[in-house]
Amino acid sequence: MKNEDTTTNTRREILAGLGLATLGLASLNKVWDAMRAEQQTELATTLSSHAANNSGFPNVSLVTHEGEIVRFYDDLIRNKVVAINMMYTQCAGICPVATANLLRVQDLLGLRAGRDIFMYSLTLQPELDTPATLKRYAERHGIQPGWKLLTGMPEDIELLRYSLGFFDRDAEVDDIKENHTGMVRIGNDALGRWSMAPSLAEPSQILATINHLDPKVVHTYTSTHS
């Protein structure tokens, strides 16, 4: 127990020292390096933290494209309605279409994005997708606030990938990152209710599934035509 507290404190100190609130791109990478250096101790933290929540999700630490350190369950999932996809910035296959669809979803959500509905993109390639890389990706695609792009320790990302159901039972299929980019995992933690939408579906369809899981919405469908 004592060991874990020490770990957390050390982490916090490192991160605090980096001045998280006003991070530039260079600093983002410093956060990243600091976290990588901590990989071994991070594992211990990870293990202790999923014992502490009943959601079944690993409460691992992740870094957003804005350089914010977040806990997966506590900060991103708990009591929220969320839409989560997996991507990587170098993915040339269906990722660009998926990102375009989700941008349209964010647009359709309007003020609900970041207030009622939280959108997350988890990188499948954390070794390459540093916070700075993700920030450039977000800027290039015009991703608005309320949608966080996330990276973290590769092992933590793998845990999240499995726990969110972005995997295939066939190891050969599972080894291909692009195979995990086809789904948007959509859930409502307070209700313990989870579904999905294809990331290549019409944006209005993805929105309809989000709306199905958002108790504030009555009619789930918003036409994007006309």
Binding site: G56, L159, S163, G165
Partner: peptide, 16 residues
């Protein structure tokens, strides 16, 4: 270890 931990909780709702 992670997946074993998940098995322990009986209140698991959405748990893998």
């Amino acid at each position: 270890h992670f997946f074993k931990q998940s098995l322990v909780g009986s209140t698991v709702l959405a748990a893998p």
